[in-house]
């Protein structure tokens, strides 16, 4: 695949490409924060249920304290997402002035 020039032009596509310079996509939040938040909440709720699980509930799950374990794993996953976002924040968006086709 050589790189000698631009793809074929089309008026409808060019129109949208022009508009893309006004894009507000850089204002999009980081999804890692939402995933992290939801899983921390789930982890805390389910682990707490697990702490207070009755014998009957543990027996239903074949003797596994599944609520406790699943809760702790979800909590750890949620914290990992938050930590990842904190350590490696989203790369700054590429400058929008880029002309289509330069």
């Amino acid at each position: 695949m050589s790189n000698d020039g631009q793809p074929a032009q089309d008026p409808l596509i060019d129109e949208t490409q022009e508009e893309q310079r006004r894009s507000a996509a850089a204002r999009l939040f980081d999804i890692r924060r939402v995933i992290g938040g939801l899983f921390v909440a789930y982890g805390v709720i389910v682990a707490l249920i697990g702490v207070f699980d009755s014998r009957a509930e543990i027996d239903k799950a074949e003797g596994v304290r599944i609520n406790l374990w699943a809760g702790l794993v979800m909590l750890a996953f949620g914290l990992f997402m938050l930590l990842w976002q904190w350590l490696r924040p989203a790369e700054p968006p590429a400058p929008n002035e880029k002309q289509p086709g330069t």
Binding site: T16, Q20, R22, S23, A24, A25, A26, L28
Partner: peptide
């Protein structure tokens, strides 16, 4: 996600971002 939508590309293709 609404605040990140100004153009049709933002709406249909997430602003290719």
């Amino acid at each position: 996600a609404r605040r990140a939508i100004r153009t049709s590309v933002d709406f249909f293709l997430s602003g290719r971002s």
